[in-house]
Design a binder for these strands. Structure first.
Lengths: 355, 355
DNA sequence: TTGTAGGCGTTATCAA
DNA sequence: TTGATAACGCCTACAA
């Protein structure tokens, strides 16, 4: 009786089961359960009751195959253990899960091979959209993505490509930092940039040069160093900065990890922070922790706070909007950042002694 | 010519397209691409080339519907912004993504309603398995899960239920902490437990009572307090402990957040740590950060380190094993923890002054 | 070794 | 308002 060509059975009740039990057709049952199309109230009641009784659960898979909408989104992050990213992912999740989407979360580890593989896998899974958090898009990845489902970029944006983008206001961030240091009396301010493949890093570097010039501060040879966001690059940069003539009185680091390692290196050379040199970070990666750690008399790092959760929420909203109306103009949003002044920035040594 | 009842077309090439282009049947194409079943080398070449030319990508959705295996896993965590969880998720991801699985990651926020909703949604998506990280299973969730796809529990385990479980060795953890404090001379040691619905919290509480008794230390009324893992419970607990007679000389907190807040409260009452009272945490939530922060002369919190990544990896391996062989005996693994002695634990005040 | 012929569970079209 | 029917894209038992 049973067909011979059967796939392994699910064990779950299906529309057909409900149809049989309630004596109606699958179409009617489908309409009743999905809530679209006409179905008489009395039959609807019966169908819902039967579904309940049989413990019916829809197969999102089958629905997705039929409707060509999976109600899933892919999220790529560089490294979920970097405190910056969970906060962003949480913001995304809050917004899209309320809209019925579920997230595939993937780690790229900053590897372009892995990025490619993951994008391919997500496309094979027919995600309705992709959110790329701090991803530098490789040429291959780009080919995979365009044409393709909607894609929203957070933090980093792809070069020469008009796409939805949500990021921090890097110009403001640098202006805040330099304004703070300049106000304290610093004129010799060095900058450890992020890797040049990162659009965020490039924007900050350009902003640094522009603002320094606006403030009338020279940028001597050696003051601008390219690092890679890793703590280790902080150590190398610090060594080089100590050999600069004149020696900088303040250093902006690409992020907080780098900043802490710079401080370590300076201490190792017998220099105190901020007594001899001020150091500022970026991201406020340890935000909550610094506050919590106040109890341990920790010094706090002066740094820029990113609106992490809001970045995620905005990206999610941009995605939902794009899914709803694919043809609207791309949105590019910059969110304001904050300056968190703590204990690693102070007056330059010459002023402190002379004043 | 085209059938009237067409669903919105994918736009992507399908097996049928390749079959037509290469002049073979869909089955042969399927066998060639999926790599199972026989197909002559020469035809296989042709098929692969055609697939390449047409930019063919498999539809994981269709495959999943047909094979009843989605190659996806669901992961539930309480709060992805708690540093403990990303590390565990990363461990899981490393292992399962190598095996071809993709993760749905969901935040429950410790809300049982949300836990239920998410489990339902993941089951609707036909995940092949579920990994529950630090989840207290509500009665409704339990009904949803059993019978159901394999489920592996990390950190917390469901009561009265034999299921795959990976967790830290809580008995060892408490023994390490109490051994450390006892060795320093402490006898009056209080314990701020986690919420009793958490199996981990219960295990630690029981271990505390057992070890204290083994060490011959009394546990006066008021020394054992139930908190909720939130920092705020640390403050409340500290207030109550200060009223205990005799006052404890050391406090074990449910986790690092609680521990820091206890220290804050003690400081607010003019007591120093560890001078007047020693305080220990749990989880090493700030692990990397404390190390990095060494440069800022932060005091470090004495705490228990969890093998976070390893917990994730072990859970993932347990899941893969279970998927491969559903009938084998459940595995329950305890991973060893470490004791990280830093600056918040020291000799009790009476010894320091008398010695 | 290859092709035929369903069917996985759903939705959508059309006719009744 | 309802039901028959055909897809969505893939896999697979069986026949050839």
């Amino acid at each position: 009786m049973k067909p011979v060509h059967a796939a392994p059975p699910t064990g779950r009740a299906t529309l057909a089961d409900i149809a049989r039990e309630s004596g109606m057709s699958r179409s009617t049952v489908s309409r009743a359960l999905a809530g679209n199309g006409y179905v008489s109230p009395v039959k609807k009641q019966l169908i819902l009751a039967t579904a309940e009784r049989l413990g019916y659960r829809v197969s999102t898979l089958a629905r997705a195959l039929r409707t060509q909408r999976s109600m899933t989104l892919g999220v790529l992050v560089a490294d979920i253990t970097n405190p910056l990213f969970p906060a962003i992912v949480k913001g995304i999740d809050e917004v899209v899960s309320a809209a019925g989407y579920t997230l595939f979360l993937c780690n790229t580890d900053e590897k372009s091979r892995r990025q490619q593989t993951l994008i391919r896998s997500l496309l094979d899974r027919q995600v309705d959209g992709l959110i790329m958090v701090s991803q530098t898009l490789s040429a291959e990845s780009r080919k995979l993505l365009f044409p393709g489902p909607p894609c929203v970029f957070v933090n980093r944006r792809p070069a020469r490509l008009s796409a939805d983008y949500i990021g921090p206001d890097n110009l403001q961030a640098i202006a805040l930092l330099l304004g703070h240091l300049h106000g304290l009396g610093h004129r010799r301010i060095a900058f450890i940039a992020g890797p040049s493949h990162s659009s965020t890093a490039r924007e900050r570097k350009d902003a640094y040069l522009a603002q320094m010039s606006r403030l009338g501060c020279a940028v001597p040879k050696g003051y601008l160093i390219e690092g890679d966001y890793q703590a280790s690059s902080g150590r190398r940069a610090a060594e080089r900065l100590l050999n600069c003539v004149p020696r900088p009185s303040a250093v902006l680091a690409a992020n907080d990890f780098v900043a802490l390692e710079v401080i370590n290196a300076l201490n190792a050379h017998g220099l105190s922070v901020p007594g001899d040199i001020s150091v500022c970070g970026f991201d406020d990666a340890f935000g909550v922790h610094f506050t919590a750690l106040a109890s341990l008399q920790a010094k706090g790092l002066t740094t820029v706070t990113q609106p992490k959760r809001e970045l995620g929420q905005a990206a999610a909203r941009a995605m939902l909007m794009r899914l709803d109306q694919p043809q609207t103009a791309v949105c590019q949003t910059l969110l304001p950042v904050g300056l968190q002044i703590r204990d690693t920035s102070g007056e330059p040594a010459e002023m402190a002694t002379s004043g």
